[in-house]
Amino acid sequence: MAWKFDNPLVSLADDQQNAAARGVWEGESLGGITEDNNRLPVPVVGLLILTIVTSFLVTFPLWGQRPTAALYEDYIALMDSPQVQALPDDAKRMQYIVDTVRAKGTAKQPQLDRHPLSMDDLRLIQGQVVELQRQGARMEEFTVLGNRLVLANFEGNWRADGTRERVQPWWDKGYTIDVFYIIAFCVSVIVVVKRLPPYTWQPKHKH
């Protein structure tokens, strides 16, 4: 195998190897069924690249996540405020809280929309959220499970202090392995395919 630096992608095989391969290809019908030496059509190459890009974009864990305690911190902070207390019933109170947080603007808004709750739900978790805040816990690591807050069910990277990240990351070592794995795949396929005669040459099939 000789790498031609001036024209690396034409062939990794030398002329002699190519000539031998062509000779064999011409000389027999490869087990009864001839094969053509066509390249991958350009639209198909485009489709493959699109697939690889899509595969990362579409797998990030942005959907279907459970609500975390951090989501509702703003709600709970507002709960006991005089403005909220002054309102006549729970529905209006909740509406006021939601509107206020929305008006303030938060990056968590899409998740808040996906996980709406009632004033009663808030009351159930209020004490636990306040207790966790007092302990200085990482709020995004606690999942709201009905009336309970539990440590999230994820085991991410180790932190320096020996604890584990419990937030689903948008990027983790799974993706990193993927990147290397895909690169290895592409390189290997190119190496294997480049051992064939160049696609500019077509076999003459003799049946």
């Binding site: 391969a21 794995y181 290895a184 290997s188 064939l196």
Partner: peptide, 26 residues
């Protein structure tokens, strides 16, 4: 001694081996 079989079988072992490594051992 034709074409890609030598390198192909090594590649096959490598590909399947790394796949097993990632999906089973890790």
């Amino acid at each position: 001694a034709f074409r890609e079989y030598k390198i192909g079988s090594r590649m096959f072992a490598f590909a399947l081996g790394s796949s097993m490594m990632i999906t089973l051992y890790f």
